[in-house]
């Protein structure tokens, strides 16, 4: 009885307060965004490509946005833990999250990951890291054709270290097998770090990993080929797969996403900020020195970009027999 009364009284009151708050904050969004530090949540552990590129952004972020950004980590299930919670977070543009392709396309295709690709709202894809094949510095394989001719004579014997199963590395290796008609063995590790350590220690034949790993490994590893359209400025001597007659282009795109109820104009503003950072010479130099390839897929081009990728990876998933 009493409870009902409270509920009856408080409901409209609550509704009014909520409505007031919402309209108040909605009105204040557009003009003074960003008005406080931006929480930049990464769906992975520290130390990966997402972390490094976000840290590079962080150094120049205040210059372009007028506010600082705070990087936080929310790892789990290859990013799915964070992405499945993104839409429940504060949608005023001060909470943003790193987002990746193929991860956010492949995960929902392969299994129920707690989110659907269409439910995520990327506003900018600012770079991509192509795959590359590495061998230890003292390996007998000097070129990719050395490796492929060995693999042809010894099916299955060539082992590739990479990060995780069904990952961009794994997809790259499977497509490589497909395009070359070879059979190689993919060995998943819990991250690029452990995979590259094993490779440097000659525990495996080769590595199928992001080209960025080449930058930190120094002369311990040799890069045989890279899956970008053009050669990378950080590694001018490394040929692309295309040059070598293998049509393997791709890797992982990384961008910034917001909760889906974030207002349109805030999305556009955020997209502009990220775009400006992408032109900052200091930022560009750091990214390119470390083997990243900058891309400028801004908010207005996002739909077309997503559609093209979705189509491509749907095909890849069917090819790999990964559809659920």
């Amino acid at each position: 009885m009493n409870k009902n009364k409270i509920a009856r009284l408080s409901k409209p009151l609550l509704a009014a307060v909520t409505a007031g708050l919402v309209s108040f904050s909605a009105a204040s969004f557009a003009d003074d965004y960003p008005s406080k530090p931006i929480n930049y949540i990464l769906p992975f552990n520290a130390g990966g490509e997402s972390d490094l590129s976000a840290r590079f952004q962080q150094t120049v972020f205040e210059k372009h946005a007028g506010v600082k950004t705070v990087i936080q980590y929310m790892p789990g299930a290859g990013g799915a833990v964070a992405w499945s919670q993104l839409n429940g977070m504060e949608a005023d543009g001060h909470t943003v999250m790193g987002i990746n392709i193929p991860h956010t396309i492949m995960q929902p295709i392969v299994k129920d990951s707690g989110y659907k690709t269409e439910e995520l709202t990327p506003v900018y894809y600012f770079h991509y890291t192509p795959n590359a094949i590495f061998v230890p510095a003292n390996s007998k394989f000097k070129t990719l054709s050395d490796l492929t001719s060995f693999a042809k004579k010894n099916p299955g014997m060539v082992t590739f270290a990479g990060s995780g199963s069904n990952s961009a590395n794994h997809i790259g290796q499977t497509l490589f097998d497909k395009f070359t008609g070879l059979t190689t063995t993919y060995v998943p590790f819990s991250g690029i770090g452990p995979a590259m350590t094993s490779l440097m220690g000659n525990q495996l034949t080769a590595g199928f990993a992001y080209a960025t790993s080449g930058a930190s490994a120094g002369d311990k590893l040799r890069m045989l080929a890279v899956s970008s359209e053009k050669r990378l400025s950080a590694f001018p001597d490394v040929p692309t797969f295309k040059e070598l007659g293998i049509n393997l282009v791709g890797g992982a795109y990384r961008g910034v996403a917001v909760p889906k109820s974030t207002p349109e104009d805030v999305r556009v503003k955020l997209s502009n900020i990220i775009g400006e950072i992408n032109k900052d010479p200091e930022f560009v130099k750091k990214m390119e020195d470390n083997g990243f390839v900058l891309t400028d897929i801004s908010y207005d081009e996002m739909d077309a970009f997503l559609e093209a990728n979705q189509k491509e990876y749907q095909g890849v998933a069917e090819l790999l027999g990964l559809t659920k």
Partner: peptide, 23 residues
Amino acid sequence: LGIPGTPPDAIILGALLVQGIKT
């Protein structure tokens, strides 16, 4: 080697790379 031994090492490695220090 440029390979972090532990998660805090990974963050410190990132800080180094941001400073332009090549491990």
